[in-house]
Design a binder for these strands. Structure first.
Lengths: 366, 366
DNA sequence: CGTAGACATGACTGCGCAATCATACAGGAC
DNA sequence: GTCCTGTATGATTGCGCAGTCATGTCTACG
């Protein structure tokens, strides 16, 4: 291939040899300087950097990757939706990846597409990523594809075959427990659960935490209603639950569903929280401002991502060093105005609260 | 560089020569088959594909990029937040990019970081992308950096220096007009505007549309309140507006701010929509389920992205062909329950509506 | 029957960089 | 001084693919 003249007649982008020539050194020395390798004198380093700056030199990543066998990029498989949870993970991942000197490649899965994860993974592997992050995975199709780079699984246990698998989890299950405890301690006889789609690990995690808390308190375990994370599904579930007058507390697996559920309760003439308490999960930005302000759970996306990524990078760069143990990240229950004691509970049922004036901690907003 | 033995002693990943050997052809022929080049017999094609499948062959993108001078990747600069708007654009972009056979590289800007766009762009150019998408830009720092690949600017006019700039816009300004018209036609004397940060083009666009509608109707132009897109800022603005009893209609530049604003009104004892009408922008998934269900605007993210990307790819692949003209994408006003005639307007003020049972079109949910 | 053209394939080369090895020179140990 | 070790640099090579050009085979048509 001969280098094409650029359309505008502009000069071709400079190569490392051009920098070398200008600095009066060899091409290899330029490479040494730019890779911060040892055994370069201060004087030469200076001259090379000056020459590079003068020419506006920029290393060719394709050549670097070809010569070194590493792309310095990390791929992420994420759900292709603008849901707050997945989007938050993704933004945190991008920042963290850039901070550790890698670049990010994204592949999304379409919800409901079986094999979506597999094909997204294949696309990333085709691109030659050095490592893969699987964000909020669901358990279909994975494991069928063999991944030959290290994998970081966020928010799920490592049920995966790859040379190295590391995980970062938030203590979501534990928190689901805490949520349920919170409601039971308010005096509710039991707590219903509006679960997320059960092929999602995070949904199963929350379900397990809820179940565990009910058992620990000796409370009855009502049937689980399953939604698809959307407010619409929460609304549908809410209509169903509203038919059962005995329901006094619901733990929804995310905030969107909680909001839809509340809507359905209001339309059915049931007041929140006077007649029924609702807790969400995620602490989406509007959670503090909907009516009533939503009691929910905030997950430490950024900390979990940073910690997991640090492990992944270590595995990529120093495969032989022992990994430090992983700690679950703490999660936080944010109590606002959508929870209260049950109507006939230990503390007497409240009168109708028209418009609550207090609302919870509004921070956590951008 | 000698090829390193893989840790597990697993066989090295195959190259095109390996495929060639197995198929009994030359390496170049393998390349021809995989690139769908002409002049390959059906028999040979078959044998090559079989051999590739048997070996699990996967082309090395770095080598491809180096040899061909193209990376087949597109970079996107996006705001590093989980706000619904930017996140929706990003997900649409990823899907569209994959559909046209490219891969996506993401670089985020941190809000409030001056030069953030410039450094995100630099990072993408370092990665050797063939084209760049600037999503929902703000006007700082851009233009200072010279971009030597085609650029697609989404949602803003092309104020940019690059070899080729294409744009895709949604008719947001026009829609802001329609929103304002809607409110004025309900009988409101005027409409207040809770604007987005004015360094965002999309925020300015909405402001301009609002202003234009007021002028056309001869309505007074009240002072603009500016928020930062967050529900928290909408809440703050709402408290401020609540002190002015004459405000009967507010157009918020996005749904999050609208929700915060409504919350503040409710806390101040003003009913929505009986006392004050509120319109948002974006149609976030929960918009149909908050109380009251939010009248808002739905933007055709996907269509705009697809159209713009098609142009970008054409510019990348066939720089000489004339570009077809761009059409603004239509936007859609979704009327729900947060708007009504003013209390003292032409149609008599309604009685207090406790819990509205009707809510708007709940589709558009995942 | 000869040759132009379409078709089909392979040999060779180079993309721009980093890895490897070779080289050169300094200073200290003996 | 000789040897060694550490430091600093350059020459050469090859990563895996696609571009270029050469070569061969087959058909069509004058």
């Amino acid at each position: 291939m001969t280098r094409l003249a650029r359309p505008g007649g502009s000069p071709p982008t400079p190569r490392s040899v051009d920098v070398a020539r200008l600095a009066g050194v060899s091409q290899k020395t330029v490479s040494r300087v730019l890779n911060d390798e040892p055994y370069v004198s201060a004087d030469v380093r200076r001259r090379v950097l000056d020459a590079a700056a003068e020419l506006g030199y920029r290393r060719n990543q394709a050549a670097r990757a070809l010569a070194s066998g590493r792309t310095r990029s990390i791929g992420v498989v994420t759900l292709g939706s603008a849901l707050y949870g997945p989007a938050s993970w993704l933004m945190g991942i991008e920042r963290a990846v850039r901070e550790v000197g890698y670049t990010l490649r994204v592949a999304t899965t379409i919800e409901g597409d079986p094999g979506g994860i597999a094909s997204a993974l294949a696309s990333l592997l085709d691109q030659g990523v050095d490592g893969v992050i699987i964000s909020e995975p669901i358990d279909e199709g994975v494991g069928l594809i063999s991944v030959d780079v290290p994998v970081l699984v966020l928010g799920a246990p490592p049920t995966f075959s790859a040379p190295q698998v590391v995980t970062a989890r938030v203590g979501a299950g534990r928190l689901a427990r805490a949520v349920t405890d919170h409601l039971l301690e308010l005096g509710h006889a039991t707590v219903h659960h509006l679960a997320g789609p059960q092929q999602w690990y995070s949904a199963r995690d929350r379900l397990a935490g809820w179940r565990e808390a009910l058992r620990a308190h000796g409370a009855d375990e009502p049937p689980v209603v399953e939604g698809d994370w959307s407010a619409a599904s929460g609304y549908a579930a809410g209509r169903e639950l509203a038919r059962d007058g005995s329901v006094t507390a619901v733990f929804a697996a995310n905030d969107d569903m909680a909001i839809g559920l509340i809507r359905a309760q209001l339309e059915a003439g049931r007041r929140v929280p006077a007649d029924i308490s609702v807790v969400g999960f995620d602490d989406i930005p509007v959670a503090a401002y909907v009516t009533p302000p939503l009691t929910t759970v905030r997950q430490p996306f950024d900390a979990a991502v940073r910690q997991g990524l640090a492990l992944l990078v270590q595995v990529i760069e120093k495969p032989d060093v022992e990994l430090p143990p992983v700690a679950d990240q703490p999660v936080e229950l944010v109590v606002r105005a959508s929870t209260a004691p049950p109507p006939q509970g230990p503390s007497p049922g409240r009168g109708r609260r028209a418009i609550p004036h207090a609302h919870g901690d509004p921070n956590g907003q951008p």
